[in-house]
């Protein structure tokens, strides 16, 4: 049951993204989120540090204003999700005055009542945030929470695959294993990063690129790295 819903969401985004330009997946994730979850607007932003933010896509201008507000004030659910690495679910924004004094009031004036932010991340790799905004207070229903978490995972997979470059590789992010939350994949990533003295993110990208270009699963490539069957020299640039 759970697995079916997940596969259905992946398929829906993949189909939508097929019919769009190269950066289309993010727009499709936002569209699917607004369609399927009881919220009014959705935004995905990518960050390369706490102070640098690039807004990838929004479903409504309203979401863009709220994203900019957080960025300007340096506080809010999205900022917190990114810095702490955990989801931030706020069913009643007005109760968060102690947490974000500036944002709670300003967002209230913008008509925001509830916000739900999910970090786009894979272990040490933090890429950005998916935030759902709603004008009515109240928690996400269980199904909505699940959909949002799956869509955040999917957006992460898409971002990681996008970053590896070529168009052919980009198509691979729809593979379910591309989120790479296998333990073996993560251990292999750390190992490669240490051996090549590169960042975790860079090591993860090289492992992915290797798997995609040799048409192997991430798990297979990871296991070979761990058994030291694949020399780390293979991943040098």
């Amino acid at each position: 049951m759970d697995g079916q819903r997940r596969a259905w969401l992946w398929q829906r985004v993949a189909d939508g993204a097929d019919h769009r330009s190269s950066a289309g997946w993010a727009g499709v994730v936002c569209e699917v989120a607004v369609d399927e979850i009881d919220v009014d607007a959705v935004a995905i932003s990518v960050r390369s540090g706490a102070r640098v933010q690039e807004l990838v896509t929004v479903s409504e201008v309203w979401a863009q204003e709220l994203e900019e507000l957080q960025y300007t004030l340096g506080e809010g659910p999205g900022v917190e999700a990114f810095t702490t690495g955990g989801p931030v679910l706020v069913a009643e924004v007005h109760t968060a005055r102690g947490r974000w004094p500036g944002f709670a009031d300003a967002a209230g004036a913008h008509g925001l009542a509830a916000a739900f932010s999910f970090p786009l991340q894979s272990g040490a790799i933090r890429l950005g945030v998916l935030t759902l905004y709603r004008g009515r207070a109240g928690p996400l229903a269980t199904g909505g929470l699940m959909d949002a978490a799956v869509l955040a995972e999917l957006a992460t997979a898409a971002l990681l695959a996008d970053a590896t470059g070529s168009k052919r590789e980009r198509a691979q992010w729809i593979r379910e294993d591309s989120s790479g939350h296998y333990d073996a994949f993560n251990v292999a990533t750390g190992m490669l990063a240490a051996q090549l003295r590169i960042s975790i993110e860079e090591a993860s990208l090289r492992l992915r690129a290797h798997a995609f270009s040799h048409n192997r699963s991430l798990l297979e490539v990871a296991q070979e790295v761990l058994r030291r069957h694949l020399s780390s020299d293979l991943f040098r640039e």
Binding site: G85, G86, P119, Q121, S122, G123, A124, H181, D183, N186, V187, A188, T189, G190, M191, L192, A193, A194, Q195, I200
Partner: peptide, 16 residues
Amino acid sequence: VNDRAHIAQAVGVLAG
């Protein structure tokens, strides 16, 4: 779940 992934990456760094 993400911490678990992070710890696995750190294990890899140590092992490597």
